[in-house]
Design a protein around this nucleic acid. Sequence first.
DNA 1: GCCATTACGCTACGGGTCGTAGCGAAAGCC
DNA 2: GGCTTTCGCTACGACCCGTAGCGTAATGGC
Lengths: 206, 206
Amino acid sequence: MQSRTPAAGRPGRPRSAAADAAILAATRAALVELGWSKLTLGDVATRAGVAKTTLYRRWSGKNELVVDAVAELFDELRLPDRGSLAADIEGVVLQFAAILARPEARSGLMAVVAESTRDEALRERIRESIVERQKRLVIEGRARAQARGELPQEADSTDAARTADLIFDVVAGAVVHRTLVSAEPADETWVRDFTRVLLTGLAARG
Amino acid sequence: MQSRTPAAGRPGRPRSAAADAAILAATRAALVELGWSKLTLGDVATRAGVAKTTLYRRWSGKNELVVDAVAELFDELRLPDRGSLAADIEGVVLQFAAILARPEARSGLMAVVAESTRDEALRERIRESIVERQKRLVIEGRARAQARGELPQEADSTDAARTADLIFDVVAGAVVHRTLVSAEPADETWVRDFTRVLLTGLAARG
DNA sequence: GCCATTACGCTACGGGTCGTAGCGAAAGCC
DNA sequence: GGCTTTCGCTACGACCCGTAGCGTAATGGC
């Protein structure tokens, strides 16, 4: 999670784990109050009750710090077992929407994605800490649906991986766009419409 | 397009239209070279060959300037008439992906969206200049498909508007997520898979 | 218990950007 | 020509950055 795992059996005074938690919490609080652009590391350090130099010893900059602070928010996602693929998708999408409704996620997530377009290492960090970490939901949901007979088995494993990536882009992208760009809530009504389109397509409507 | 239309029949020296174009072009060039966070208004002014004060007279800050600079990029989108809904969608999605592949769009767009989560006026500016402006593509494409009999008529006009919003969120969101977060190209293969899911749904596969 | 080693809090610093103010000159409209 | 507004330029205080240096605190090894 940290910028560099301080290793185990090193001599000297160990890094305070409490400081880590305080810094990440202070970062989220600052994101809520100030947003990305007005967030300063000096302010975060003051909020966390640590010195600015302590913060710089653990994270190389604002980007890396915010990625870690935001990544923690998505770990609470759970794939519910509601008996059908449609209901399972609706459940997890609603959870995702609830996280994106929180201001610390809204302002932080998009900002680091924007920065990552010019920083390969940062993008990889985002992929590992957030995206790849949550792709488990798609894999597990599809396996469960295939066991139920709701989805066909993928013959080729390459095809299967490609489909999983596609679904993840569609689901995450649609919810993010709805929430952040259109600025409308991804509520039950919207999620039901979205799930129907995803499962049965546009032509099957009416 | 500008921060404030300088009105028509005002006395005094009129604002230079050439300066506007030079500033917006310089902004895009700076986005390519520096990205969002390292872009400074002083640097943009120097690139454009104007004084920093001139820039501040027209735009209230970095956010508004970049919105205008990026919005121009999306005006080149055209809805092709390829004879079928699937082919039309593939065509416009590929155009959209091509724009998002350009670095000035990548770093600029996501950054202003991130800032807009804490700035209501900025979000409205984005909606007007970019989102609502391009939603014409969805409206026109659906009307054409309904005329062809590929999509059912919407009984309720409220339903129709809701569906248009949904489609826009799904299409734009998926392409953005694929391009910027997953960092994979939205090429012909991906667009074909995506269009099939959008039109016929997941269950119809295999 | 002593020592080497690392983390910590604090202060201070040069460098850069911000956004604004003030000035004289230029460019339009009456 | 006279009025009005824009333009380029310079200068300014304020803020934040990222780092260096120092004395102190907390470990593990001996």
